[in-house]
């Protein structure tokens, strides 16, 4: 009879990832690199929004972009073409989120190694899974667009709990949707009372400079 034994583990499944994320954040702190994790649904305007923000910050900071997608390199090519900054595509191989290890590997794949002030991670378009895994980012930004509806924070609570700031995008089409802006903000703050919220329209640039200023302050704060 083989010797069967029970090993008591009592370990959180997310613990290993949380530990690696904390290590990554610490190493970024030492290198004075600000990593911003951007999350949203597919089609919320992540790439257009980021393009606008990057164009306002690229003269001041050395910026690298990592686009996470299940497949294709459409986003990386778009961002690179519209901003001139380096953008690489990370393929998740069918996975619905990035974890801390994949993020670290992505940072190592950027050509300039540690020569960045700001690295933007565009996470997989999905409001569920990316929220579960700490990427090691300094801050989490979430984009919610008007056509998605003002009730999304109630349906995807974790996403709004882990986000430090939320952009409400596509406010130019508010008149065409049953979207209650006050209600939406209330729903977000219900989940996360400390969140900062911005109203933007990435397409016409409305509100983008306020977000860029906000990120600039976060970067200087992080370098202290």
């Amino acid at each position: 009879m083989e010797n069967i034994r029970i090993i008591e583990v009592k370990q959180s499944v997310f613990a290993a990832n949380d530990k690696r994320a904390a290590e990554l954040r610490q190493s970024l702190k030492e290198k004075k690199i600000f990593l911003l994790n951007v999350m949203s649904s597919p089609g919320s305007g992540k790439t257009t929004t980021l393009t606008g923000i990057i164009n306002l910050l690229k003269d001041e900071f050395r910026i690298g972009v990592m686009e996470a997608d299940i497949d294709s390199d459409v986003d990386a090519r778009t961002v690179s073409a519209l901003t001139g900054v380096e953008a690489i595509q990370l393929h998740t191989g069918g996975m619905c989120h990035l974890d801390a290890d994949m993020t670290r590997q992505g940072i190592e794949a950027l050509s300039n190694k540690d020569g960045y002030d700001l690295i933007i991670l565009e996470n997989v378009g999905n409001l569920v899974c990316p929220a579960e895994f700490d990427t090691g980012a300094v801050r989490n930004m979430c984009i919610l667009s008007v056509p998605e509806g003002d009730d999304k924070p109630l349906k995807y609570p974790l996403m709004f709990e882990v986000s430090n700031f939320v952009l409400i995008n596509k406010i130019d089409v508010l008149d065409y949707f049953d979207f209650d802006m006050d209600k939406c903000k209330e729903n977000i703050r219900y989940r996360n009372p400390n969140v900062d919220i911005f109203e933007i329209c990435a397409k016409n640039g409305q509100g983008i400079s306020e977000v860029a200023d906000y990120i600039r302050d976060l970067i200087y704060e992080w370098r202290k």
Partner: peptide
């Protein structure tokens, strides 16, 4: 959900239910 059924307050927090733990493993 988040609203207390006894006093209708929103001032509540989750005690348990978001755990995702490896409890034990049986091995040879």
């Amino acid at each position: 959900g988040k609203k207390c059924p006894y006093c209708q307050s929103d001032n509540t927090y989750l005690l348990q239910g978001n755990e995702f733990m490896i409890k034990e493993m049986e091995v040879i």
